[in-house]
């Protein structure tokens, strides 16, 4: 199968798609020499992220083996992972304003 996505680090819970993937389409993600295949449950645009496994609400999102944010809701495998279901954990002046 031709790869259309990449998982950068073995610990990552998301893959980055390298072509537009339609809802129901296969995400064929390379992780070094391994290939992980899953179905996209919604359209994933070029360059965007897809969950490679189920991610629970508040769980950390991992890319490059590092934390890039946290899930604001449960995210199923194959779902689009982006601003609609992930928040940043840094530069959050809004949270500090709330604490005051």
């Amino acid at each position: 199968m031709i790869r259309n996505a990449i998982i950068i680090d073995a610990g990552d819970n998301i893959a980055t798609v390298l072509r537009d993937v339609a809802a129901g389409g296969d995400v064929v993600a390379g992780l070094g020499d391994e290939t992980v295949v899953l179905a996209a449950v919604e359209p994933i645009p070029f360059g965007h992220k897809v969950a490679v496994r189920a991610i629970a609400k508040d769980e950390e999102i991992l890319k490059y083996g590092a934390v890039i944010g946290a899930a604001t809701q449960d995210i199923a495998q194959g779902m689009h992972v982006h601003v609609q279901n992930v928040v940043s954990l840094r530069g959050r002046g809004d949270l500090e304003a709330g604490e005051k």
Binding site: T16, F46, H48, V67, I68, H82, V83, L89, R90
Partner: peptide, 11 residues
């Protein structure tokens, strides 16, 4: 372009 958070952009 698919970048969700500053952490992701920074990495």
């Amino acid at each position: 372009g698919g970048l969700t958070t500053i952490e992701e952009k920074s990495l």
